[in-house]
Design a protein around this nucleic acid. Structure first.
Ligand SMILES: [Zn+2]
Ligand SMILES: [Zn+2]
Ligand SMILES: [Zn+2]
Ligand SMILES: [Zn+2]
Lengths: 377, 377
DNA sequence: TAACAAGGTCACTAGGTCAG
DNA sequence: CTGACCTAGTGACCTTGTTA
């Protein structure tokens, strides 16, 4: 879904150039979600982030966009990009520092300037003492935060697991109804869908910079939750969560009480991908699973402050992002869904407490991930 | 063809300066369709629109144009521009004074301005400026929901514990610094401050309507969390959380790793009382504490759907209330504080896992509360 | 390996300013 | 009115990373 989304399965190798959905120029590949020409790709990349605030239409906000007039109204060009289906989420922040340096300098100067302006105004007029609190400086992400957000959302690539999920769905749907969602195959599938969660940890720089002990403790505490949540996110995306057959088999291989909770997780997991990934990253730095296995290492952190600071940093980015992206009502709903999500995933974890095939597979993944991390050290 | 078409594919990077097609001056790039010098570009831009009507030739309309005499006859210069291939269509009407793109600074100032306006109106009429937009049917509470909200916030009366807290603070502050926050007294105080949490459960109609088994399981699962959170809320209100002496003694009677977490909880409980109470009520119906004591009852719910529905109901009221009360940014911050709160309280509970005086007191409260509930049955 | 889709660079071309 | 010099946006071409 994210980085590269080469031809979908039925589509053949692209030889014939088609039209750019934005301007009609000849186009060959899809960028940020839709078939578009290079120019429109670059335009979107450059303007998607801030353009929505800064661009203006000099006419009626309904300018037609074509190859020849696409330069005339940037506002309407951007609108067309968005309505045609280009997704901001697919833009990554710059990974190199060359340009960033310059930008950062500018931003800092800007901030300094803005701050001094704010001070002047405060001194001039005391009647709006809360002006600073409300200023939008606070509510936008800094360049560093955009970078971190980009890294967090892209280091955890869900393409693999989504493909596995789609394949499973196709296989099941091609079977006669009676034969769908057999227990053994479902267990196998669920286990597979949990597998690549190690990425979430071993590609996260903040996680890698923790002490070996803390990484190990966090893995033991959180991996069951993160793996389950991200698997359920995928189940929802491929439509598995809605299959009665799936829920029935799930009840038989786990616990009938898990079903309402699984439904609940599925309902709440309809979050935007970016928010979900930020949330998964936050969970990695949370001390949530307090079940103590007798054979697990002692759950004592060597530097708990570092963990809390990271968690805090991620939550701040999450809310700044939500603030940036959504309007009032959507934002509040999004956050309450996150809270429901935390509570639901906790509830689910209790119900699977004694399911051997699940717990032992999680254990295996934890051990494998620990090995990978040690090797990478 | 259009705006910028740098070097066509076969054309190499332009290094050698060529001649302006109009005046023969050295030129490097093409403007409005033909290779021309800057001056001729500017001339065309300025005169193409009106010049054809206003300019006149004082000679024979066939003046030669070169680098030296190009100023002499504007009429013929413009004619040469047109006949050489400059296109009026490539001039973009700039709409004179209107800035094409708002600068970021301007946007921020606009926002600040809007915010300050909002403040004015808030003071005038206690209403949000965007009231109409936001007051969709979805975002307001129904009469039933207002009732429930009122019940939830009033059944759990914090006056008692706040008084105890204030009394403790006064006592401590009247002592010499060296004698403040002695361990034994602090333990006593903390235990007392946990005591009246039973109200949260046994005055809640939704809780009382659960089966005896489910009430018992929920008590065991959640009481430690709710009691700690509500105690810490009070500590924050009376100013205890900010006392260095308190934090130092707390470290000595619990665990030094608890301190950063305790600070974190204190930072995040700066929530409005209503939200905090709704959140505490929500926690009562959450399956969060999965530590299994050997002597505790089996953690199996008889009707998990009822519990989840209640939790859901409370969260919905919470977000509707937040939506009703706060503006966009405040609302999002409030919710992210709630999430931080959940994670922080979890983290804190791990740190106190083996603190005897705490765990055993919690056990006592659980048993007492169970008794009260049975008597009320 | 080839196809695809992210990222980046910099030559190029609009528009604007201000001293002359 | 002119033109030297400026900013900012554009897109052809390139590099890098991922997947089939
Ligand atoms: Zn296009
Ligand atoms: Zn327009
Ligand atoms: Zn010329
Ligand atoms: Zn003439």
């Amino acid at each position: 879904m994210s980085y590269n989304e080469p031809r979908s399965s039925e589509q053949q190798v692209n030889t014939a150039a088609v039209e750019c959905k934005i301007c009609g120029a000849s186009a060959k590949y899809s960028y940020f979600g839709i078939i578009s020409c290079q120019p429109c790709k670059m335009f979107f990349k450059r303007n998607a982030e801030q353009g929505q605030n800064t661009l203006q239409c000099n006419y009626n906000k309904n300018c037609e966009i074509n190859l020849n007039n696409r330069h005339v109204c940037s506002y309407c060009r951007l609108q067309k990009c968005l309505t045609s289906g280009m997704e901001t989420e697919k833009i990554r922040r710059s990974l190199s520092n060359k340009r960033k340096r310059k930008r950062e300098k500018d931003v800092n100067e800007d901030l300094a300037e803005r701050n001094s302006m704010a001070l002047v105004r405060l001194n001039e007029s005391k009647q709006f003492p809360t002006l600073n609190l409300l200023r939008s400086d606070q509510s936008t992400l800094t360049a560093d935060q955009w970078n971190l957000l980009s890294n967090l959302t892209h280091c955890y690539n869900e393409n693999g697991r989504t493909t596995v999920g789609q394949h499973y769905m196709q296989t099941q749907n091609s079977l006669p109804i009676k034969l769908r969602f057999k227990a053994a195959a479902l267990i196998q599938f669920i286990q597979t869908s949990l597998d690549d969660i190690d990425m979430l940890y071993n590609k996260n720089q903040d996680f890698l910079s923790l002490s070996a002990n803390d990484r190990s403790v966090l893995l033991h505490m959180t991996l069951k939750h993160t793996a389950s949540l991200s698997a359920n996110y995928m189940y929802h995306q491929v439509g598995l969560s809605d299959c009665i057959g799936y829920l029935n088999t799930l009840a038989s291989i786990t616990n009938v009480d898990l079903i309402p909770i699984a439904k609940r997780v599925a309902e709440r997991v309809k979050l935007d991908t970016v928010v979900m990934k930020l949330f998964l990253a936050t969970l990695c730095f949370s001390t949530i699973n307090i079940t103590v296995y007798s054979n697990s290492p002692p759950l004592i952190f060597s530097n708990i402050k570092q963990i809390l600071d990271t968690q805090n940093k991620y939550i701040e980015i999450t809310w700044r992002y939500i603030l940036y992206k959504y309007d009032h009502e959507q934002a509040v709903k999004c956050f309450s869904d996150l809270i429901r999500c935390i509570l639901a995933i906790h509830a689910a974890m209790i119900q699977v407490e004694n399911i051997q095939w699940f717990e032992s597979h999680i254990d295996t993944i934890i051990k494998q991930t620990e090995k990978i991390i040690i090797v990478e050290d």
